[in-house]
Design a protein around this nucleic acid. Sequence first.
RNA 1: CGGGGCGUGGCGCAGUCCGGCUAGCGCGCUUGCAUGGGGUGCAAGAGGUCGGAGGUUCAAAUCCUCUCGCCCCGACCA
Length: 480
Amino acid sequence: MTEDKLPTRKENFSEWYNQLVVKSELADYAPVRGCMVVRPYGWTLWENMTGGLDRRFKETGHTNAAFPMLIPLSFFEKEKEHVEGFSPQLAVVTHGGGEKLEEPLVVRPTSETIIGYMYARWIKSYRDLPVLINQWGSVLRWEIRTKLFIRTAEFYWQEGHTAHSTEQEAREETLRMLDVYADFAINDAAIPVIKGEKSETEKFAGAVQSTSIEAMMQDTRALQSGTSHFFGQNFAKAFEIQYLDPSNTLQYCWTTSWGLSSRMVGAVIMTHGDDQGLILPPKIAPLQVVIVPIYKNDTEKSSVLESTNSVFKDLKDSGIRVKLDDREEVTPGFKYNYWELRGVPVRIEIGPKDVEQQSVTVARRDVPGKSGKSSFTKAEVAAKMHPFLLEIQDALLARATAFRDEHIHEPASYDDLKNIVQDGWAFAYWCGSTTCETKVKEETKATTRCIPLEGQPKVAGKCVVCGNKAEKKVYFARAY
RNA sequence: CGGGGCGUGGCGCAGUCCGGCUAGCGCGCUUGCAUGGGGUGCAAGAGGUCGGAGGUUCAAAUCCUCUCGCCCCGACCA
């Protein structure tokens, strides 16, 4: 375990991220290229995220199930765009039990095909609809360039798959789950996101329409943090997912899928972290409070530990995720840096002076140095901690929102757009043509992120690239 | 696929050109003592078939041949 200083975000944002993930013990590199090991601290963070999502899925009527990891290769060939989109990324199992398999099996890169196959068997009548199933698991997409949490071959996620009797109901489901993702991102992860529709080139392979939530990282690059797809009847026709309607006519279902992955962990790191390390939002932080005792000799030690123990108990009893760092072999200063690197939202310091005054010193992770320190009386710590954590949660969201808004600009011209996307997002009229989109990508590396669902102008304008009539505005940005 | 670079304790490196005692250094790790309100100091330890195979030699981390792996740049792909 190395505890050297991180590079600053300004010096080298990418290197800051790579080292931070490893040093904070969120994750580590696995012996297989492209794969990562999620360490206990990182997995606890992910669990706190999945918990918030899973609760929301249940509230919106979904139930969990599990589908197999291995999928017959032939399944992928049933939907044309789907196979074209995924075949370069597939890992294929050709042997089992020492023998060559009759049909190769694909390690799932996503589960539309196998779930579609099962839905076709289960759905017979309009009375069986809607089917609202979610699956938690991992998937594998072959990747060369990897970055822990952001792009790895295997990653953890959930994928919801639903089938409906009408187009409208399926479209509503897609937007409902996009709202769930946005609500989670904003309120739990304190990440402001923009909901929008993907362009033809950016949408999911096989979808009629893809929508996503897009977040801005501190290097101003965009990160797609959750997606929701409307498939129309594409998969229903490929897998014959059919039902008899009330008039005894055979109909194809309308299906959707939606997913949010462990990439969200990367989003939390790159949205909130600073040069000292992680800054975790209290709602999802594995530890919300860490207590550091300070003493010089045995006399001080016993009175200080008495105080830390009682504060620890008060906080724990009130439902706070708290840790007492009573290690004797490292100094308090070392512990400050250690827990700051790991992003614990609140640090409580208790020394002889605090004991004497029946108080504790409280330091906020999101406000470094003396200005983030204040004093609570010992008796009120537990009562004050809940609102204090909420205040921090709000401050993180406000800071991230301000940062994002400062880096979104509306270009006055195409040249202006080229400048803007070097250090921000450009919000501009776009005619919708792939030609214009591709031109921007080739000349600036920026792609269209999404056509936002909200905040569209009432009147048409001119495409920032070609000058033709444009109905809607889109975000252009460099993306992960 | 083309060009360049690197493999030496857990991590980062020196030593290789010009072969020679027991292969060093920093960080980390273990133990002890002191220290303790912002990355503490001192001392004693543990830990290496020098990427692998073969060869030259009295003697190889060092020279020769083959081989494996990784990184960077370019090409290709999205």
